[in-house]
Amino acid sequence: MSRFFQYLFDGLSSGAIYSLLALCLVVVYRGTGYLNFAQGEMSMFCTFLVWKLNDWGMPLWLAAISGMLIGYLGGATVETTLIRPVAKRSQFAVFVVAIGLFLGLNSLAGAIWGAPPQETMPSLFPNEPDDFQRIFGASWRYQSIGILIVGLVVTGLLFALFNKTRFGLAMRAVASNADSARLVGVNTGRVLAASWGLAAAIGALAGTMVAGTTGEVVPGLMFSYFVYASAAATLGGFDSLGGAVIAGLTIGVVENMAAGYAPKWIGQEMRLGVALLIILGVLLIKPTGLFGEQKVSRV
């Protein structure tokens, strides 16, 4: 049983990160109808900035908040200057620009901070070897507990933003019917920029936590996390915040259990394969995901 709880807990902790990044994808998708392929690279780049600020002597928590602010401004700027102008032309143009951002941010990070030499990154949470608690025979590391709590808190704040605030209502209105939103006086441009900014800020936080667990910042930091998050968003149904969170946690638990109980067949190497098979399976069987609306364009 202790193995079960270990896999469950580890799964929830990594699932919390997938959920956060999936929320970023969903927030952007609901506002604009685009999948931001550069989401992972945007958070990777912000994480490098957090690391650099910390390296210069800023306390890590302050560096993380600064990174989120920079992320917000960066995300909003990208939406207004790069995405919105080409969005009028076609969805393919948006896709190409996002791919350009993906490639550009990745290579820029490599160029500025060097590709292979890893930069050591401290964790936001206590992370000494004996910083853990034993519950049900499983070791619950403070770091993992911290990630899970941050994940839940951010999710809660997002829900409050969307459901309790005037601006959140405006964001949901834009997602529901952009034309009517303009007619009731919503500045849709500002809402879209804010969606991208918000997604980038949450991404920066997620990236900082990921780098804290591995202890290093590399250009490929968020790559597999982006794939997991896409799987979570797909499973959750792309326009559902709650769906993204539940799906993220589920995928985290499922892949940890799969890797743990079938070390020969799946193991560490094929963990990503589990997530990818979920994407393929969901899209083949139920393209709207478990919690999605009917918005998927069916042929």
Binding site: L35, G273, S297
Partner: peptide
Amino acid sequence: PALRIKGIYLALVTLAVAVLFPTMMKWPK
């Protein structure tokens, strides 16, 4: 899948394929 879905959803399927391929080739089995 492209027969049922399109746009970003097909892009996601192909993303999965692109990432899965090298993983499969490195699979111990």
